[in-house]
Simulated assay, not measured.
Amino acid sequence: MRLSRTTRIALGVVTALVLVVVYLPLAVVLVNSFSTSTALAWPPPGFTLEWWGRAFQSEGALDAVLTSVLVAIVSTAIALVLGTLVSFALQRFAFFGRDAISLLFILPIALPGIVTGIALNNFFRTIMGVPLSIWTVVIAHATFCIVTVFNNVIARLRRQGTSLEEASADLGAGVWTTFRLVTFPQLRGALLAGALLAFALSFDEIIVTTFTAGSGVTTLPIYILNNMFRPNQAPVVSVIAVVLVLVSIIPIAIAQKLGGDTKPGR
């Protein structure tokens, strides 16, 4: 398809405007992390590395990072197991209500975070009668992390088919041998991509976390929200925000690379 010169220029301008709107605020946050001002002022009066030193020496920030990492790792592990099992069940077996179940598993990622947060808060406190804690946050995050694993794995299962597994069975391999030597190697990239996306999604989640975390649980996004408008904390928050962006970009970039692999059997 050939585009006219005018159309190409128009598309280029629109693309540039969208990128500016998306990434200019992030650039401002990055610059403010080096600003000598104690507020989010623009333009910055000077540049310093003081705030980066304070951020990495802040016990509250470090504790929040560790909490976010713990929640993300455990919820990702849960999502890997459940998301993979559900993918196999829905792709390899035909039964009544399969499409409805598939929709129900995808729905949590589409629901507004505040709706999910309120629903889980009521479920934990009213129905289950359990206090909010780091484990209620883990369960809450796992509900939407499952979707990323499920989508990656079921897409790979649909693409690779069952011919290699059937050939393995014909040659005398058992179910677990076939899974270990044939199925798992083909799913490895999809599993890793789903896990990285789930980790990134959990690590920077704030709305659902706010409704399901106990009073003593502070993840990194909650720490940023609580300290953003405190005196002399804005530059430190900017540093943490920059680190959060970098931590989110790395797994997403890796997952995109892995997800772009369309060659069967790899």
Rank of each mutant, 00 (worst) to 15 (best):
S58F: 02
L244Y: 02
T84W: 05
A155W: 03
S168K: 09
G194W: 06
I134M: 13
Q57H: 14
L49E: 00
S4M: 02
A41H: 07
R92N: 11
V81F: 09
P43W: 06
T36V: 05
P25T: 09
I9K: 04
N226Y: 05
V236T: 10
R230F: 00
N152F: 13
T48W: 10
W51T: 03
I127R: 09
F179G: 01
L82P: 01
R8E: 13
I222L: 13
F47R: 11
G265F: 15
F96G: 09
F123T: 12
N152Y: 07
T212F: 08
L181R: 14
C145M: 06
N151L: 15
V130G: 10
L49R: 10
A241D: 07
T38Y: 11
R5Q: 15
P108Y: 10
L157S: 08
L197T: 04
T162M: 10
I254E: 05
V130Q: 09
F229I: 00
T6N: 10
S133I: 13
V243A: 13
R188L: 12
A213Q: 07
G83A: 01
H141F: 12
T67N: 12
I249D: 02
P221I: 03
I250Q: 01
L70Q: 08
L19M: 14
A110M: 12
H141I: 08
L40T: 09
T162Q: 12
R125A: 13
T209S: 13
F124Y: 10
L17V: 15
T84G: 03
I114G: 05
V13W: 12
G83I: 03
V130E: 07
G46M: 15
A64I: 08
V208W: 11
I127V: 14
L120V: 07
Q186G: 14
I78E: 05
P264S: 05
I250H: 01
L11W: 12
F144C: 04
P221R: 07
A241W: 00
K263T: 14
F199K: 04
S4L: 01
S35C: 12
L258P: 01
F229G: 00
L85N: 05
G53R: 12
S102Y: 02
T177L: 08
G214H: 09
R188S: 08
S4T: 15
A167P: 03
L187H: 02
Y223C: 01
Q186P: 11
I109E: 06
R180F: 02
F34E: 02
G161Q: 08
F105P: 03
P45G: 00
L103D: 11
L197R: 02
H141T: 07
L90I: 11
L196P: 05
N232E: 15
F123M: 12
G83P: 02
I101G: 06
L220I: 09
Y23I: 07
P131T: 14
E165G: 06
A142K: 02
A39K: 12
L66F: 08
I222F: 03
S58A: 14
G60S: 01
I224V: 15
T210Y: 15
G260D: 06
V182M: 06
T116K: 11
Q91E: 14
F95I: 00
A241P: 07
